[in-house]
Amino acid sequence: MRHPLDVVVRIGGAGLCRTDLHIIEGQWSPITNIELPYTLGHENAGWVTEVGSAVSNVAVGDTVILHPTPTCGQCYACRSGDDMFCSASSFPGVNTDGGMAEMVLTSARACVRVDPTTRPADIAALADAGLTAYAAVKKATPLLHPGSYCVVIGAGGLGHIGIQCLTAMAATHVIVLDRNPQALELAKGLGARTCLEVVDDGTAVLKEVLEITDGRGADVVIDFVGEGGTEQYAPAMVRNGGTYLVVGYGAELRIPYIDLISRGLNVVGNLVGTYNELVELMALQRDGLVTLHTRSYPLDAVGDAIADLENGRIRGRGVLIPD
C-alpha cells in the first residue's frame, strides 16, 4: 500500500459509459494529459481485498461501490462538500488506472459499503451514471412543484436512472424524448407520463412539448444526451425563467446573451455528484426505488461491449464482469 488510506477492491462489475467513448475519441486528452496505455473504468463496485493502516470505515471482505474520485478531504472543495472539485483528487478510469480489470486501487474516502448480499455487477453503474443522474435530479427537484413539467432528453444509461429518481423525488409531469422506441417503452414502464419519439431535428417534439405545456415550455429540461442536435432544440423547450440542466456532452451550446437575459434562462452544468449523494442514491436503490437495467459482458469482451454502446445496441447500461 502506498498510502495509509489506500483500499484495493476486487472488481465485481465495471460500468461502461459514453465517457469511455469520448476518452477513446480523444476528447479528454487536453484535460488529463495522461500517457498511454492505461485502464478505463470509472463505474466500479466489488469486494475489499486489502486496506491501508489508517482505514477504519471498511474492512477486507466488505461489498462496496466506489465514488468515482478518491479525494483528499482537506482542501476547500472537500470541506465544502464539493467532492468532484477536490484539488488533489484522482479519477480512476479517466486520469489513472480504472476498474476494467480484476483489481482497482482507490481510497477509504471513496468506498460506500452496501448490503453484502448485493451483486456488485447490479450496482456498479450507479457509481457514475446513477450518481450523475441523481445529482442532476436533486438540483431540479426544488424547481418541480406539483403541476410542473420536466423534460428528460435520453432514456438510456443515465436517463433511465434519472426518470426513476424523478418519479421518486418530485411530483412533476415527466416528458421523455428519445430516438429509440425501445428506450421510450422502458421509460414508460419506469413512470414517465409522456414519451415522445424524436424523428427529425427536434422540430416536431419541440412543438409537442410546447402544446403539452400550454405554450409555456418545461420548468426544467434535463439533457442526458448533449449532442446530436439536442443542444439546438433543448433550450427552446425551457419556459421563461426555467432551467436547462446539461448532463450529457459532446456538442457545443450557443445561446445569444440577449436570449439568456430576456428569457431569464438558467443553464446549469453537472459533473457527477458528491459522496453523500452516492450514499443517498444507494438508499433509493436499497428501497427498490431505483433499479439498473443492464447488459453484462465478460471483461475480455470489452471490444464487443464498446461497439454495442457506440452503435446504440445497449438498453440501460453495459457492465463488464471479470471471470
Rank of each mutant, 00 (worst) to 15 (best):
S29R: 10
E50P: 01
V48M: 02
L21Q: 02
G12E: 09
S53A: 08
T32D: 04
V64H: 07
V58Y: 10
N44T: 14
I31N: 04
R18N: 13
T19V: 09
T49N: 00
T19R: 09
V51S: 04
I24C: 06
A54K: 14
V64K: 05
G26E: 02
L40H: 11
G61H: 03
V58P: 10
V60C: 08
V58A: 08
D62T: 13
W47P: 00
L16A: 10
D20Y: 10
G41Y: 12
I24E: 13
Q27N: 11
S56W: 05
E35N: 15
A45E: 07
H42P: 03
G52I: 04
G15L: 05
G52C: 04
G12N: 14
G13Y: 13
R10G: 08
N33E: 14
T19N: 03
G13E: 07
R10A: 13
T19G: 01
E43N: 12
G52L: 10
R10S: 11
D62E: 10
R18S: 12
I24F: 07
D20P: 02
A45L: 08
S29F: 01
T39Q: 14
N44I: 14
V48Q: 02
Q27I: 02
L40K: 09
T49G: 02
I23K: 03
V55C: 02
H42L: 08
E50N: 06
T32Q: 06
A59V: 07
V55T: 03
P37R: 07
T32H: 12
A45D: 07
V58Q: 10
E25L: 05
G26T: 00
A45V: 08
S29P: 00
L36A: 15
V60P: 12
T63C: 13
D20E: 15
A45N: 12
P37V: 05
H22C: 05
T19D: 00
G52W: 03
T49M: 05
W28K: 01
E43A: 14
Q27S: 09
R18M: 10
N33R: 15
T49V: 15
Q27F: 14
G46E: 06
R10C: 05
R10F: 04
T39V: 15
S56A: 08
I34T: 10
E35H: 14
N57I: 02
A54M: 05
G46L: 12
L36Q: 15
G46T: 04
C17K: 09
V60F: 06
G26L: 05
N57T: 14
S53R: 10
V48G: 01
I11Q: 09
V55K: 03
H42N: 03
G26M: 00
N44A: 15
Q27D: 13
V64P: 11
Y38K: 00
I24N: 04
T32E: 08
T32C: 08
V64A: 07
N44W: 11
Y38V: 07
L21T: 01
G13C: 07
E35Q: 14
Y38P: 00
Y38T: 01
L21S: 00
Q27A: 11
Y38S: 02
I31F: 15
L21I: 12
W28P: 03
I23D: 01
